[in-house]
């Protein structure tokens, strides 16, 4: 299976759906996402300064558009730290957290969903009770509680955000695995004598991959929003590390004097979540009309 799962799903799904050309907004979204990925990967190369470097002679200098100089194209903050450099590193941190958390969520949720589908009975009831439990609390509150109890660290933050939306993957994985096991290919492969690893890894997972990827695309912006919200509150990424949300939180103090400190990261957050949402909606409509 050399092709990517998405391509394969689209090309082999029996009722061949016409793949309409991506609308302009989606193309914009993809381009923006590519740009963000490139920035995150190349942060060390393209950032003009270290994100902690102070330039006390140029404190609160405005961006070029507001009459600033090319020394600091997006201006500086109260300590003279270069906003562009901080922005670049913030993008890296925020994307890293969002990717890590989304993948953890998908892995945990899918595994639990498979466990529920495979063992049924008590295991299934336990998973479903957990699903109920996570659906019954606003995730932000839960996250805040955990942070209060455990204190803060980057690893914990990623794992914690990873738990966001796990129940969605669990539901999907369980439902699709049950459907495949009832009469479908999974039951057939089981009848061939395949081990559960083979059934779920080789057959069920590739078959539901497109649905899972769509869900991940829909959950990804939510994770970015959660992380930036927590960081904005000062409870997420801790200084000296910086993320998009913590930049906004910091810039808030200078709302009147230096709004650019806040506006640049805020617009990056909005554009990124918007892009991924657009892509996710488009993928969902094209690939998987069963998902809402």
């Amino acid at each position: 299976m050399p092709e990517a799962p998405l391509v394969l799903a689209a090309s082999t799904a029996p009722p061949k759906r016409r793949r309409a050309a991506a609308p302009a907004l989606v193309i914009f979204g993809m381009a923006w996402l590519m740009l963000m990925l490139a920035v995150a990967v190349l942060a060390d190369v393209i950032a003009p300064y270290a994100y902690t470097a102070l330039d006390l002679r140029n404190r609160l200098s405005p961006p070029i558009l507001f009459g600033g100089t090319w020394i600091h194209p997006l201006g500086t903050d109260e300590l003279g730290r270069d906003v562009l450099s901080r922005l670049i590193y913030s993008i890296r941190t925020s994307l890293l957290i969002a990717f890590g958390a989304t993948i953890i969520g998908a892995a945990v949720g899918t595994s639990l969903g498979f466990l529920a589908a495979h063992f049924r009975g008590l295991v299934e009831q336990a998973v479903l009770a957990l699903v109920d439990f996570s659906a019954s609390l606003p995730f932000l509150i839960l996250a805040l509680a955990v942070l209060a109890f455990f204190g803060n660290s980057l690893g914990l933050l990623v794992c914690l955000l990873g738990l966001h939306a796990w129940e969605r993957y669990a539901r999907i994985a369980r439902g699709l695995a049950l459907a495949a096991g009832a009469q479908g290919y999974a039951a057939a492969v089981r009848g061939l004598g395949a081990s559960p690893w083979r059934i779920y890894g080789r057959h069920v997972l590739p078959n539901i991959a497109s649905t899972l990827i769509v869900s991940m695309t829909l959950a990804f912006p939510e994770v970015i929003l959660l992380e930036s919200g927590l960081s904005f509150l000062g409870l997420g990424v801790q200084p000296p590390e910086t993320s998009l949300g913590s930049m906004v939180g910091y810039g808030r103090e200078y709302l009147t004097r230096a709004p650019w400190i806040l506006l640049t990261p805020a617009s990056v957050i909005v554009l990124t979540t918007l892009s991924v949402s657009l892509i996710g909606d488009w993928l969902r409509d094209g690939l998987d009309p069963t998902l809402r």
Binding site: S228, G245, L255, T256, A266, I269, V270, T273, S277, L278
Partner: peptide
């Protein structure tokens, strides 16, 4: 609606402050 979902409430709130208060 999509914008409403993708603009985090702290950004929206601060933008409103910037406009109506500042």
């Amino acid at each position: 609606a999509v914008a409403g979902f993708t603009v985090p409430s702290f950004v929206l709130g601060l933008l409103l402050v910037l406009l109506f208060a500042v």
